[in-house]
Design a protein around this nucleic acid. Structure first.
Lengths: 349, 349
DNA sequence: TGTTAGCACTCACGGCCAGAGAGTGCTAAC
DNA sequence: GTTAGCACTCTCTGGCCGTGAGTGCTAACA
């Protein structure tokens, strides 16, 4: 059986209708809504073929048809791209694009907020759920260290990594050095550890460093371990999610069992990581994972649109949009495209 | 009609049973389960009285009775305290207490993690939802400022406030000063702004400061506004929630409408703030808000147990546990008690 | 006067059935 | 290859009924 142009058009109608209404689509509905010059009976025959070929599924004998994962896959890979090419790529309104751009420009300097706010913007804009991970560099190095006074029993170590991540670590120490002392110790730390990776820092500190810290051995040990932790934090991605509750608005999750499965998956860090990094990933593009393709079992009633972004060339993070398989793929793809573009623009300046 | 001892005991049975089973409690159940030496008919009469007095409610004519908000209120204010006094205050196991203590001790030095981890621990332990706010000082002052090099087009300003909150602010500036220059500028900033509040910082900077920054006016302006923001952040509380999905496990939220109302409220910052700070608050104790007492309409099927904590005497934050009105109040109260105690212990050291 | 047994009554819930509506597959004609 | 027609299937809704749990009331008892 051949997937001719007419079958493809019918499949497209079924998918777009189903995305819009969440109701199984019947032959008469198509005949009525889209003037194909065909009767419902003819469409019925074609639909029967599409079902045999696995692109659509009948929930039961007297319902209409619903797209299968395979049907969505065809839609995403062929039909959507074709339409996107015709439309010049954008299904977002100017206002929506401005909103996204504003969120990114406002936060591009506050890296810790950027991801949180981006996730929020995505969930507000799409009504789906957004998941974002921090950028992660495979081999992170120390760029700068600074000890600052905090109070009578503690100091702060500020670490800046080569990929520009800034972190604070409070270190408790009885009778810490005064301001000038801390500046001197900071200089020693920078001289010894600047440009070094975690593995180096975890080794026994050099004699020079030990000498500089004489009388403050505890502070040295704590600083070294904090610095190494700041670098290793790469493994321990920070993840942000936003709009989890949006899931509840979709009729496919009226079944509490299903909703709870999704919530479980979204509260477990490992399944979120799998969602962001799982198989079949072309690193420089936008990746669509449909239903059962998802490695996370509990998310097999969902689809994921995801991409990678980079803030500075050295490391990269990931952004994903999660919705029901019946989600608006073109919108989600456009949103991710725009975000990556806007991030790149904002960084260039 | 008088609320005699027998009525109180029956009310207590109804409440504890209902908390445990979520099923309306009938007179026969009580007669069977708790050997009061009374027949179901007698208990029925007493229950009828309790209903007239407003402590219990019948969902419909042939169901058992369910506690009303007023019933829970009595339970919390009188019965629970009485039992707590008998039990020496603790309904938590040693293991649970150790778990909480561990989480707090492990994070007491990393203030930004402490609240997040505490919230997580609460939700894991209780299966309810936890909401925690950062500590906030009414009149926050700068303790220390430090500029650090980041890259060719930006520097970091680290702010330390009097209440020991450390924040980073990336400042973009073309051709920033080198390390030594930044140290000199930092010294000038500290001399001019140390001990000052946001209002002072927002005024026109002193001639001395302007002179020190000559050639770097943009950096000065950005530093001042970042420093003022760090102080004002007091208004813009950071909030952490954990275990939102736990709500779905309770039969009272099988109705998707109700579940969604709660989710809505928990995603909106203003209602979370209201939840934490709303009326009827004895600042140094544990506060219980039952059902309709809650100022947040969407949370009127829930109860909230909340308290304030302080990390350093200058400011305080809040912790709340949210569950169905049929929640285990004594457990929640014990958890909050323990947490506040453990935080105080950890700080003393 | 408080307690209890007995009984009629109420209401939610689950199972069953019938009718309506939507959609299909098949056949025969165009 | 397309279409009209028709029998068939399946879901959904509403009504009906029996069951079970629990109540309120009354009358008898201690």
């Amino acid at each position: 059986m051949e997937l001719n142009e007419r079958k493809i058009r019918i499949l497209e109608y079924i998918i777009t209708d189903y995305i819009a209404t969440a109701e199984p689509v019947g032959s008469r509905t198509i005949a009525r809504k889209h003037d194909m010059g065909l009767s419902s009976a003819t469409i019925r025959n074609e639909m029967s073929d599409l079902e045999v070929m696995g692109y659509i599924v009948a929930p039961h004998a007297s319902a209409g048809r619903v797209p299968s994962d395979k049907g969505y896959r065809l839609y995403v890979d062929r039909l959507m791209r074709r339409r996107a090419a015709e439309n010049d790529g954008g299904v977002l309104s100017d206002e929506e694009r401005r909103f996204l751009q504003g969120v990114i420009n406002d936060n591009i300097d506050r890296i810790d907020y950027l991801m949180r706010e981006t996730a929020k913007a995505i969930s507000v804009l799409t009504n789906y759920t957004a998941v974002v991970s921090e950028t992660v560099s495979p081999e992170e190095k120390i760029q700068h260290l600074q000890l600052l006074p905090l109070d009578e029993a503690s100091v702060v170590l500020v670490t800046v990594t080569a990929s520009k991540k800034v972190k604070n670590h409070v270190i408790r120490i009885p009778a810490p050095p005064e301001h000038d002392g801390l500046m001197r110790l900071s200089a020693a730390l920078n001289a010894a550890l600047g440009g070094k990776a975690a593995a180096y820092i975890r080794r026994k500190p050099s004699a020079g460093l030990r000498e500089a810290f004489s009388g403050y051995e505890g502070l040295l040990a704590a600083s070294l371990s904090a610095a190494a932790d700041a670098l290793d934090a790469g493994d321990d991605h920070e993840l942000f999610t936003s709009g989890i509750k949006n899931i509840l608005a979709f009729p496919e999750f009226n079944d509490l069992q299903k909703a709870r499965a999704v919530f479980d998956a979204l509260e477990a860090k490992d399944s979120l990581l799998m969602l962001l990094t799982g198989s079949g990933w072309e690193d420089d593009g936008i990746n669509v994972v449909i239903g059962q393709e998802n490695a996370v079992m509990k998310l097999q009633d969902c689809s994921v649109i995801r991409t990678a972004y980079s803030l500075n060339g050295t490391g990269f993070g990931r952004i994903a949009i999660l919705g029901p398989t019946r989600m608006d793929y073109s919108q989600a793809v456009s949103v991710l495209h725009s975000i990556v573009d806007f991030i790149n623009d904002a960084i260039q300046q």
